[in-house]
Amino acid sequence: MDLLEFARGPALQTAAYILVAGTIWRIVGIVMLKEKADYSEPRGRGGFFAALKVIWTRAFTAEPFKKATMYPKMMAYVMHIGLFATIFLFTPHIVFFEGWMGFDWPGLPNSVIFFIGVATVISGVALLVRRMTSPVLKMISNFDDYFSWFVTMLPLITGLLIPVRVLFQYEDLLAIHILSVALLLIWLPFGKLGHAFLVFITRGTTGMVFERRGART
C-alpha cells in the first residue's frame, strides 16, 4: 500500500469514524447534563422556531457593533464562505462526495476555486496576525486556537499546492493533502472547531431563552 492508498483508505476512514464518534460524544456530554425547567410566564414564543431564528440572525452583526467588529467579521466571512466553496464546490471534491453519497451537484471552475482558496488563506493569515497582535486576543487565546488554525489551513495550503506541483509529485501532494484533511477531521470534534456543530446549540439555546422573554436576540 503506497502513501496515497493509505491516505485515501484507512487514514480517511479512521478519521471519519473519529469525527463521528467525537462529535456524538461531545454533543451527548453537553445534552446529558441536567437542565432546569423554566416556569416563568413566557412573553414571546420560545421553542424550536426561536432557535432556528437566532441560528440564522446571529450570522449577521447588529448595527451598533458593525463598526467595531467590521474587520474580523469580514475576514471570518471570507474564511467560512471560502472553506465552504473550496470543500463543496470544487469538482474533484464533488466527484469524491458522489462516490460516497451517490449524487453530485454543480461545481465552480477550478480557476475560481483556486482564487477563492488563496483568498481563504489570506483571510486565515489575517485572522492569525490579529490573534497574535491584539491584546485582547493574545490574552484569551490558547493552544486550541493556534492548533485549530493550523489544521484548518493545512488542507487549504496543501490543496493549493497540488496544481502548482512544487517539491513533490502529484500523487504525494494529493496524499499529503488527504492526510491533512484526516488530521482536520480527527481534531474537529475535540477543540474549538467543534463550533461547526456547537453553533447550532449555542445560538439555538439563546434563541429559545431570550425569544421566550420577548427580549432582544
Binding site: 461531545r26 453537553i30 486576543l137 490558547n142 474549538k192 463550533h195 456547537l198
Partner: peptide, 14 residues
C-alpha cells in the same frame, strides 16, 4: 446543558 454549550462553544474571537 445551556451553560455547557456556552462554555464549550466560545471560539475566542474577542
Amino acid at each position: 446543558t445551556q451553560t455547557a454549550s456556552y462554555l464549550d462553544g466560545c471560539v475566542h474571537c474577542g
